[in-house]
Design a protein around this nucleic acid. Structure first.
Length: 414
RNA sequence: GUGGCUGUAGCUCAGUUGGUUAGAGCACCUGGUUGUGGUCCAGGGGGUCGGGGGUUCAAAUCCCCUCAGCCACCCCA
């Protein structure tokens, strides 16, 4: 083990993994564009208040997971733990609410101080979308459908299932919260220690508890649906109907609760059992109160985020690497010609590897190691004839090709 | 933050009740082949045994601390 270790929970994204990540991001960006979502990027750090005020004072992210520091100017800065708050801030500081609705796609690193395990890192990466300024259920439908389309395109949809729930509007949630607090308070002593704390801070999350004793109590808990007012249940019914119309299969999970305070109405998660305890692959919901809570004009919003590392683990090898052509010069004269030739080929669109040193055998070996498609051999014999030997590295066949015809001849190896 | 398991070469792993210079496969390098890779043969380099401390005549092996990874909890993407 090397004594120089990366910071806990961080890791290097080396070429194989970078290619998978790139594929995930490109797929997300391309599909999002097709749905009318433009890419945007907000800073990876913000004033701490941007997150502390909006995510909820009692949320785990704020209480224990934020990477916060004081910068040299004395400001409290936080590395972003998620993407939505930054977008909302940008909407306000940029005066973008004049141009609603807005549709954004983003990709980038997020930071949470958590204990790392499989599918969970301290610096991880997400792609996400936000739809701002649409209060209608069709917004939720579009956003979820886009998520489903991306998972389809990546070929991982079959490993996931869509869990759907509603948290209702503010009044409904408050009403449900009251009923729930009453129910659990009567059974407080039977709840796990964790859930007793949840009861004081965020009682809805008791519904999500994995503790066996809690689960037994949760089974008898009041249903959210009984507290939903007409507006809330109509809204949810429209979302469900829209997904049905699009053929997006979903599962009602009335125990699905999002961790962040700003969610309302629709909450959803595409989950998988292929990642151990980390089941959420793509998750989000509606956050109508967020922008206003941050000090901006009342602006409805709905969106989701998806972990790039988690998606990468589901897609297997991803797309194959482009196979290059290896140019192999023999001798100083050939080296000079090869340098120029290589540059011309690259500029004309051919992917070329030019070995930096070594004898022919070593260069051929390298060509093989990088999985080159063909070798272009330039030696004295070839130079005399203004030609190059082109060897197909898959078949082993080779032939002499005039330099003037080389570009065209290499076309067949693309 | 809590609990459990694990840490030996670049990778995957052997290493007996503590006992000489810690091994294998793959990978890498060199040669067989001075203009031909992928197969084969021969040879070679590479290890603070995660780190620190302790017990002992002697520690990869036993004990303590620490770091990291994995798993579960918490929470989530």
């Amino acid at each position: 083990m090397a004594s120089l270790q990366p910071v806990r929970g961080t890791h290097d994204i080396l070429p194989d993994e970078a290619r998978r990540a790139r594929h995930v991001i490109d797929t997300g960006r391309n599909l999002a564009a097709r749905y009318g979502y433009d890419e945007a990027a907000t800073p990876i750090f913000e004033f701490s208040d941007v997150f502390a005020r909006t995510l909820g004072e009692t949320s785990d992210i704020v209480t224990k997971e934020m990477y916060t520091f004081t910068d040299k100017g004395g400001d409290q800065i936080t590395l972003r733990p998620e993407g939505t708050a930054g977008i909302a801030r940008a909407l306000i500081s940029g005066g973008l609410s004049q141009n609603l609705p807005l549709k954004f796609f983003y990709a980038g690193p997020m930071f949470r101080y958590e204990r790392p395990q499989k599918g969970r890192l301290r610096q991880f990466h997400q792609i996400g979308v936000e739809l701002l300024g649409v209060a209608e259920p069709i917004g939720d439908i579009e956003v979820i459908a886009l998520g489903a389309a991306i998972l389809d395109e990546l070929g991982v949809r079959g490993n996931t299932q869509l869990e759907l729930n509603t948290l209702g509007n503010t009044q409904s949630r408050a009403a449900y919260r009251d009923v729930l607090v009453e129910y659990f308070s009567d059974r407080r002593g039977d709840l796990s220690e964790d859930s007793q704390q949840r009861l004081d801070r965020n009682p809805l999350r008791i519904l999500d508890s994995k503790n066996e004793g809690d689960r037994a109590i949760v089974i008898g808990a009041p249903e959210f649906d009984d507290s939903l007012d007409a507006e809330s249940s109509d809204f949810f019914a429209e979302v469900c109907a829209g997904l049905d119309a699009l053929g997006v299969a979903w599962h009602r999970n009335s125990r699905l609760v999002r961790g962040l305070d700003y969610y309302c109405h629709t909450a959803f998660e595409f989950t998988t059992d292929a990642l151990g305890a980390q089941s959420a692959v793509l998750a989000g919901g509606r956050y109508d109160g967020l922008v206003e809570q941050m000090g901006g004009p009342s602006t409805p919003g709905v969106g989701w985020a998806s972990g790039i590392e988690r998606l990468s683990m589901l897609i297997g090898d991803g797309p194959e690497k482009t196979r290059a052509v290896a140019v192999i010069p023999l001798g100083d004269a050939a080296e000079a010609v090869a340098l120029k030739l290589t540059d011309e080929l690259r500029r004309s669109g051919v992917s070329v590897d030019l070995g930096f040193r070594g004898k022919m055998k070593q260069r051929m070996k390298r060509a093989n190691n990088i999985n080159a498609r063909a070798a272009v051999i330039l030696g004295d014999d070839e130079l005399e004839q203004n030609a190059a030997t082109v060897r197909d590295l898959d078949s082993g066949e080779q032939e002499l090709v005039p330099l003037t015809a080389l570009r065209d001849r290499l076309e067949q190896f693309r």
